[in-house]
Simulated scan of single mutants.
Amino acid sequence: MKPAMTVVFTILFLIINFKVEAQRVLPQLTVNTLSGSAVNTRDLLKDQQPVVISFWSTICKPCLEELNAIRDHFEEWKPETPFKLVAVAVDDNRFSAKVRAFSSAGRWPATILLDQNQDFKRALNVNAIPQLFLFDQAGNLVYTHTGYVPGSELQLQKALKDLHSK
């Protein structure tokens, strides 16, 4: 291989690995709650509990199914594997009222955040929803999955158990 190509591949390798490494920690940026209050994403860790972050949209049926499935198991899982659930809506400003209605109707035991400019989504390199992340108490990524099929929530439960057994 030509030396110039080797340099190009080395640089690309380093960029890709840096990007992946950067995604392994909960990023610090500001998003809003449904009431309009600004929240620093690193403040999600202040309870010293693992944080499950689910990116969703009001027009995404699998997103709603995943959040409902987690809700259905939340009280059962909480004593053994306590965690904080955060549902991040990626709908734009036009749909903020719908976000409120969907989250209220779903009775999700979650902090609902609005990522209207999709800054949080970009910071975690979310390309498709639903996408779920599990961060430990220090903000390190320990589990992620994209998409939802019934039973996927059991993989989250296993990841939470693994995290709590450490």
Rank of each mutant, 00 (worst) to 15 (best):
K84E: 10
P27W: 01
T111M: 14
T33F: 06
L14M: 15
K61T: 13
L44F: 08
A69K: 12
L64N: 05
L114V: 06
N93V: 07
S96Q: 15
V51M: 00
W77A: 06
H73G: 07
E75Q: 15
T41A: 03
R71S: 09
V52P: 01
T30C: 07
L29F: 04
K61Q: 14
N17V: 09
L44A: 03
L45M: 09
S57V: 04
L26W: 00
K61L: 10
L64C: 06
K84T: 13
W56E: 07
W108R: 07
N40I: 12
N40L: 12
K19H: 11
F83M: 13
W77L: 01
S37N: 13
N40G: 00
L14Y: 08
T41V: 08
P27D: 08
S54I: 10
L29M: 10
N17C: 09
L44G: 03
D91W: 04
I59Y: 10
F74C: 03
F55L: 02
L34Q: 03
A22K: 14
L67N: 10
E80S: 11
A101D: 14
I16L: 14
T58M: 09
H73P: 07
A97N: 11
D115F: 00
Q116W: 02
A22M: 13
S57E: 04
N17F: 04
I59P: 01
L113Q: 06
T30P: 08
E75I: 11
P109V: 01
V20M: 07
K61P: 15
A87R: 01
L114F: 07
E66M: 02
V51D: 04
I15D: 04
L85A: 15
E75M: 10
L29Y: 05
L85K: 07
L14R: 02
P79D: 10
F83V: 04
V88K: 03
S54C: 11
W56M: 06
N117M: 09
P27C: 03
E65K: 10
V88G: 08
K78M: 15
L64I: 15
P27K: 05
I112N: 00
S96E: 14
F18S: 11
K78N: 15
L29I: 09
E80F: 11
N68S: 13
D47R: 11
W56I: 05
